[in-house]
């Protein structure tokens, strides 16, 4: 069973056709890079795969569940159990200390706050974010926010990590380390990673590259 499977998916925002008939299958343990110029629909593809956006046509099957038949609550549950998301702009919850932000998926899942925070602290350490746990997101630099978002994505040990420009605000060395962590800690447990990036070094980490242009796939090649 594939981790996520999009078949013939199209999506439009009002009159802007962001994606046209795109298909993508990600196998367990696989790392896929989605690349392409600005505005070609990469982030849209990611949000569709996460079930945040609903496909207007075509089918999305996420860890075995057809999202067309899942209501918002069901999609949210799949997301918090099996998917870790790192978005382009960090997307931490404002006003919530960074430690609680990272612990959030576990807290929502019903874990005791103490355990959840301990796990979160471990991941903050692993991504190399060294700030006091009570720091608020507004007090983080852009790169630090991205590290915290990565820690939050990994804290549940997800089957699928969806990362949108995860290294965009990081320096080369830190970016490389974070990418290693995202990929190795996920694939070691049989999970898959979808990396969206402009950065070729990020794309080169993948087993397969899917290149989008103006909402359509223009090439798809295996790199391994």
């Amino acid at each position: 069973m594939s981790t996520v499977e999009l078949s013939g998916v199209s999506h439009a925002y009002g009159r802007t056709q962001a994606l046209r008939d795109v298909s993508l299958t990600v196998a367990p343990g696989e790392v896929v890079a989605v690349t392409g110029p600005s505005g070609c629909g990469k982030s849209t593809l990611l949000l569709l795969a996460a079930g945040v956006l609903r496909a207007q046509s075509g089918r999305v099957v996420l860890t075995g569940t057809d999202l067309a038949g899942a209501d918002e609550a069901a999609r949210a549950r799949i997301r918090r159990r099996s998917v870790g998301i790192v978005l382009q702009f960090g997307q931490l919850v404002p006003d919530l200390p960074v430690l609680d932000n990272v612990a959030l998926p576990l807290l929502l899942e019903g874990h005791a706050p103490r355990e959840a925070r301990a796990a979160a602290a471990g991941w903050l350490d692993r991504v190399g974010l060294d700030v006091p746990p009570t720091t608020l997101p507004s007090e983080l630099s852009g790169g630090q926010a991205q590290l915290a978002a990565a820690a939050r994505a990994l804290v549940t040990g997800p089957l699928l990590v969806l990362a949108d420009e995860p290294t965009a605000s990081l320096d080369t060395a830190t970016g490389r380390q974070l990418l290693d962590l995202l990929v190795t800690s996920t694939t070691a447990a049989g999970g898959s990673v979808v990396l969206v990036s402009h950065d070729n070094a990020v794309a080169a980490r993948a087993d397969r590259e899917v290149r989008l242009r103006a909402g359509s796939v223009v090439h798809e090649v295996a790199l391994s």
């Binding site: 070729n200 070094a201 080169a204 980490r205 290149r211 223009v218 090439h219 090649v221 790199l223």
Partner: peptide, 20 residues
Amino acid sequence: VRGFVSRQRASHLRRMRELQ
């Protein structure tokens, strides 16, 4: 041209992947 670009891209990425 497109085929050439695609093949070149794949070949470069593969090399980068090995080197990484």
